[in-house]
């Protein structure tokens, strides 16, 4: 049940970022959170660059989920 709760939270948070429902998050989407979350534009850019594992400029649910799982359970748990 922990896993399903984390999966659900992952999807919820992904949808907060991917407000247009494209299925991926762009840098512009992340910068849009500048007013909603207590993080600076630079910190949001840092988050995007860290999560965007392949560096192609499109943050997929898989990359986002991998980052969130690492935050929740530590490295190596995907």
């Amino acid at each position: 049940s922990d896993c399903s709760a984390v999966l659900e939270k992952t999807r919820e948070f992904f949808q907060i970022c991917d407000i247009e429902g494209k299925g991926f998050i762009t840098r512009r989407d992340m910068q849009r959170l500048n007013g909603e979350l207590p993080l600076s534009a630079e910190e949001l850019e840092n988050v995007f660059a860290t999560l965007d594992a392949d560096g192609n400029g499109y943050l997929t649910l898989e990359e986002f989920s991998s980052g969130f799982s690492e935050f929740m359970f530590g490295p190596g748990v995907v």
């Binding site: 939270k9 919820e12 948070f13 907060i16 909603e36 979350l37 207590p38 993080l39 910190e43 949001l44 840092n46 988050v47 860290t50 999560l51 980052g67 969130f68 690492e70 935050f71 929740m72």
Partner: peptide, 29 residues
């Protein structure tokens, strides 16, 4: 090691990001 510092800084920002999302959803800081 600058790489270690960079990685630690990234982890900190990621933690801030996800904690902010958690607070936003639950309304509890």
């Amino acid at each position: 090691d600058p790489n270690m510092k960079g990685a630690a800084a990234n982890e900190g920002v990621l933690a801030n990001f996800f904690n902010s999302l958690l607070s936003k959803k639950t309304g509890v800081p």
